[in-house]
Computed example of a mutant assay.
Amino acid sequence: MPVADRTDEVLDAAYTCLTRYGARRTTMDDIAREMGVSRSALYQYVRNKDHALRLLAGRLHEQALARAREAAASRDPVADRVHGVLEAKLDLVLDLAGDSPHTAELLDAEARLFGDVCADFTARLRTLLTALLREAAIDEPEDAADLCIALVGGLEDRARAKPLLGRATAALVTGLAAVPASRTPPAS
C-alpha cells in the first residue's frame, strides 16, 4: 500500500517552525514534532531541513504567481490587471512579514537556499507584466515591467502599502501610456 503524500503537512509544519525559530534554528526534530510524526517519518517527504524550506519557499512563490496569472488573465482593464499582478507580489511580502520577522527570509533573493526561487518568481512576474504592457501598447514594455516591479519593491516596507499600490499603479500605467518612446529620456 503506498504511503499517503503528506508533503503539504510537512511544509505547513516547517512554516510554523520557521515563524518561531527562523531558518537557522529550525531543526528536523522541530518540524517532526510540529507535524506529530517521528523524525525518521519526516524523511519520507523531505531530504533535510534545507529541502523542506526550499519546497516551502517554492510553494509560497507559486501560490503568489498563480494569483498574479489569474489577475493577468482577467477581462479587466490593463491597469487593473497590472495592479492585480503587483498586488500578488505585495501580498506575498506583506503576509510573510506579518507572520514573523523570520518568514521574510523566504523572500531573500541572496539566500543560499532559495535565492533562485525568488529570482525565478521575479523573472516570471516580469514576463507576465511585459505581456500585459505590450498588449496595452506601452513602449518598451520590458523596461515598464521593471518599473512596475520596482514600484512594489518601494512599497514593501510602507505602512499603507496596499492603498498606495492602487494609486501608484494607476498613475504609473497612465503615465507609461501617455509618454511616447521618442519622449522617453535617454538612459544615463
Rank of each mutant, 00 (worst) to 15 (best):
S74M: 08
T122L: 11
V82L: 02
L94T: 14
E87G: 01
A68V: 07
E135A: 10
K89E: 10
D120I: 07
T103W: 04
T103M: 11
L125A: 01
R67N: 15
P101T: 12
V117Q: 09
G84V: 14
T127W: 05
A109V: 13
L132G: 10
K89I: 02
P77C: 08
D91M: 14
E110Q: 15
A73H: 14
R126H: 11
D91F: 14
K89T: 01
R75G: 12
S100W: 02
D120S: 15
A72W: 04
A109E: 13
A136E: 06
L86G: 02
L106K: 08
T103F: 07
V85T: 12
L107W: 05
H102Q: 07
L133D: 01
A104H: 02
L107Y: 07
E70L: 09
A119I: 13
P77I: 11
P101H: 04
A109M: 10
V93F: 15
L113D: 10
L92M: 10
G84N: 07
L94R: 15
H102P: 00
L107R: 06
A71N: 09
L106D: 00
A111M: 01
L125K: 01
A123E: 12
A123P: 03
D120H: 07
A72I: 06
E135C: 01
L133Q: 02
A71T: 06
A136Y: 01
R67P: 05
L106A: 06
L107C: 10
R126S: 14
A119Q: 15
S100P: 06
A104W: 00
A109I: 06
D120W: 05
E110M: 12
A79Q: 04
